[in-house]
């Protein structure tokens, strides 16, 4: 009984501490980004194809926690989302998640000791906007994250120098959906993903 109580107490403590840290989105974001950056630093030490594959998988897993890919997929399709069948919805968010993760990884591979400065956070209901700056040797790139809280904070849009990723893909997808159709779009995504669709 005493053991049970201690476990219960520990569980309670854990819950309290996690909810306290999750009231704001910035620490959650910072934690994920820090762990990715640390991983990239490790990667610079060991660099074989096998470790790379493991890296990719690990980073994708962090990505799954950090990004709300379903929300992103819905937002990029906008009103067209409703017209999809459930299967199509599932397939589209699956592909889009892998596509984004892949881009993210490609950009990370160019990582050369950039640092991230966390500037400001603004919250509105269950949404949050975190402003950061990526400091490279040459210049500083403003990068804003929009997060939404369901069970935890997750990113649903990134703006780089004021250009929102979701909005940019929305314009592109709209155009493709008008001219062609969702099947064609998904075929294009599959083709772009190529060898990495197995993530």
């Amino acid at each position: 009984m005493k053991k049970f109580l201690t476990i219960l107490f520990i569980c309670f403590l854990l819950c309290v501490s996690s909810s306290a840290s999750e009231r704001h989105a910035m620490p959650v974001l910072k934690k994920s980004i820090d762990s990715v950056i640390n991983m990239m630093k490790d990667k610079q030490k060991a660099n074989t194809p096998e470790t790379k594959a493991v890296q990719r998988k690990k980073i994708f897993n962090i990505g799954l926690e950090l990004f709300d890919f379903d929300e992103m997929a819905q937002r990029t399709l906008g009103k067209d989302w409703k017209q999809l069948s459930n299967d199509q919805k599932k397939q589209f968010s699956h592909l889009f998640a892998r596509f984004l993760a892949n881009i993210y990884y490609q950009r990370l591979e160019e990582y050369t000791n950039e640092t991230v400065k966390y500037l400001d956070e603004r919250q509105y209901k269950n949404k949050s906007l975190v402003k950061t700056i990526i400091v490279t040797q040459k210049n500083e790139i403003p990068m804003d994250y929009k997060l939404i809280k369901s069970d935890r904070w997750r990113v649903y849009d990134i703006s780089i120098e004021g250009v929102s990723l979701v909005r940019n893909y929305r314009t592109q997808f709209n155009k493709i959906l008008i001219k062609q159709g969702i099947e064609d779009l998904m075929r294009m995504m599959q083709k772009k993903l190529g060898q990495f669709s197995d993530l």
Partner: peptide, 10 residues
């Protein structure tokens, strides 16, 4: 996916 629209919107 659609470079023209991507650049325009960007």
């Amino acid at each position: 996916f659609e470079p023209y629209s991507a650049v325009k919107d960007g």
